[in-house]
């Protein structure tokens, strides 16, 4: 049974997710951003995509960041396929299969 508390909790999470997603669209529509900000924004795609990759390659360690070796092991062939095929779907399939094999043997 879904309680009202749960529905409200999900709705609140939806709201705090929605606001940062739409506010920039509304903002940009009404004001022109300064050119410095526009130049900064041009670097966001590369930075954020690599941040998301690095986030999965590292683990927040007890005392120090450590390399997530299993993910790193799957990352190498994934990167190779991405460079070689330039294909999203092939990269994802190879990544998932490599990870499944690595987990079967090492986890």
């Amino acid at each position: 049974m879904t309680t009202w508390t749960m529905v409200l909790l999900i709705a609140a999470c939806a709201l705090v997710t929605w606001l940062p997603r739409v506010i920039p669209f509304i903002l940009v529509k009404s004001v022109t951003l300064p050119s410095f900000v526009m130049r900064l924004l041009a670097y966001i795609p590369i930075c954020i995509l690599s941040a998301l990759v690095f986030e999965s390659l590292f683990t927040e360690g007890e005392h120090m960041t450590t390399v997530a070796w299993l993910n790193f092991g799957a990352f190498i062939p994934t990167l190779f396929i991405a460079l070689w095929t330039k294909s999203l779907s092939k990269t994802v399939i190879v990544g998932v299969i490599t990870m499944a094999i690595l987990r079967y043997f090492f986890a």
Partner: peptide, 23 residues
């Protein structure tokens, strides 16, 4: 589902998008 490696689909997608962007 982790043992299937499905969670790694996300990372793999980011890798491919990063390479496509760089290209």
């Amino acid at each position: 589902p982790e043992s299937w490696g499905l969670d790694f689909a996300l990372t793999a997608m980011f890798v491919a998008l990063l390479i496509l962007n760089l290209q």
